[in-house]
Amino acid sequence: MKHDLPDDQTLYSALVARDPSWDGRAYVCVTTTGIFCRLNCPARDPKPENCQFMPTISACLDAGFRACKRCHPMHSAAEADPAVKSLLSALEADPMRRWREGDLVARGHDPSTIRRAFKRTFGTTFLDMARQARLHAGLTTLANGGRVIDAQLDAGFASPAAFRAAVAKHIGLPPGAFKSKALLRADWFDTPLGPMIAVSDTSHLHLLEFTDRKALPTELKRVYKACKGAMGFGRFAPTDQIEAQLHRYFAGDCAEFDVPLALHGTPFTCAVWDMLQTLPAGSTHSYSQIARAMGRPESTRAVARANGANQIAIVIPCHRVMGADGSLTGYGGGLWRKQKLIDLERQYAPNESEPA
């Protein structure tokens, strides 16, 4: 089913006005808190730049956001089913509990019935929702610079192995891929557009992506395979470097990145990525313009594929590439982020009144 939402300004105005007509038709996800709300939530208004609007509860959950405890956005969808409402209340009361099918039976529920009810209402099962709540707590700890053991405990996992297995499944790698003394290390940090994961070795950044990108598992597997080595939790200097540079970028201080990059692609793909890094902040270009600039005017589609395969977001600015008609085109991090990045970079655009 297709859900079309109006522009962010319209939805933000509805949020500020607490417009009840939008209840159930759109939700606001607040990137600074990791929480999603109804548009008529009584909580304090978030800043516009921290808002991401979603058409469904399922989309909010898939993006890693948790339900607000003031407006209870999931309860309205569950009102018609007492069993669903009861389990949601139980999950809110104890989000770290490890739920099993036996727990559902003990509460007088048929697991298959509950599975269908949650899939129908939220697009996910109750047990998956409970696992996601626990895992989110652990990932939040990692994103805030916490130790793996602290993240494990925050997520309610009894052993490091179980936590690593859950995280590995979440991001698409086998548990054995994560070693304590690995050549590659993955770590999380927060940004105004949501958490990002960075993978680096001692000298180069290999991957930088938003954690909710659907292609992230595939990208991690590609990096893991290309490096022929294990991956671990933690960070090296390039991760600290890119986190600091992104902080300056989002603060409006600097749009230049000089962290060394390790590119995993064909020679043509890497050539496209090199070309993208020459595009000045505040500018936009079409695929065909990039193809012509590379002396390959017949390779517009190949340029588009290389653009979509970019696995170092923002630093390799694939968000500066638009459709031939100037419209937003596909962006792995979500079109809403692409628009936010383009808007942000307007402050970096060269002053046309200045001499070239």
Rank of each mutant, 00 (worst) to 15 (best):
Lys2His: 15
Gln9Leu: 08
Thr10Cys: 13
Leu11Pro: 07
Leu15Phe: 03
Arg18Asn: 06
Ser21Ala: 15
Thr33Arg: 02
Arg44Tyr: 08
Arg44Ala: 10
Asp45Gly: 00
Phe53Tyr: 10
Asp62Ser: 09
Phe65Cys: 02
Arg66Pro: 03
Arg66His: 08
Ala67Gln: 13
Lys69His: 09
Lys69Tyr: 06
Arg70Pro: 02
Met74Phe: 05
Ala77Ser: 09
Asp81Gly: 01
Ala83Phe: 07
Lys85Ala: 09
Lys85Thr: 09
Ser89Lys: 09
Leu91Met: 12
Asp94Ala: 11
Arg100Leu: 05
Ala106Glu: 13
Arg107Tyr: 07
His109Pro: 03
Arg116Cys: 14
Phe122Gly: 04
Phe122Lys: 03
Thr124Trp: 00
Met129Trp: 08
Leu142Met: 11
Asp150Met: 11
Phe157Tyr: 15
Arg164Ala: 13
Ala168Asp: 09
Pro175His: 00
Ala177Tyr: 08
Met196Tyr: 04
Met196Ser: 00
Met196His: 04
Ser200Ile: 03
Ser200Lys: 04
Asp201Thr: 07
Thr211Asp: 08
Thr218Pro: 09
Leu220Gly: 14
Arg222Asn: 12
Tyr224Cys: 14
Lys228Asn: 15
Arg235Ser: 11
Arg235Phe: 12
Gln241Tyr: 08
Ala244Glu: 14
Gln245Asp: 13
Leu246Ile: 03
Arg248Trp: 05
Asp253Asn: 06
Ala255Met: 01
Ala255Gln: 00
Glu256Gln: 07
Pro260Phe: 03
Pro260Met: 02
Gly265Asp: 15
Cys270Thr: 15
Ala271Phe: 07
Thr278Trp: 04
Thr278Ala: 05
Pro280Cys: 02
Ala281Ile: 01
Ser286Ala: 08
Gln289Val: 11
Gln289Thr: 10
Gln289Phe: 12
Met294Leu: 14
Arg296Pro: 15
Arg296Cys: 06
Thr300Trp: 14
Ala304Pro: 11
Ala309Lys: 12
Gln311Leu: 10
Ile312Asp: 13
Arg320Ser: 01
Tyr331His: 07
Gly334Val: 04
Asp343Thr: 12
Leu344Ile: 05
Glu352Asn: 06
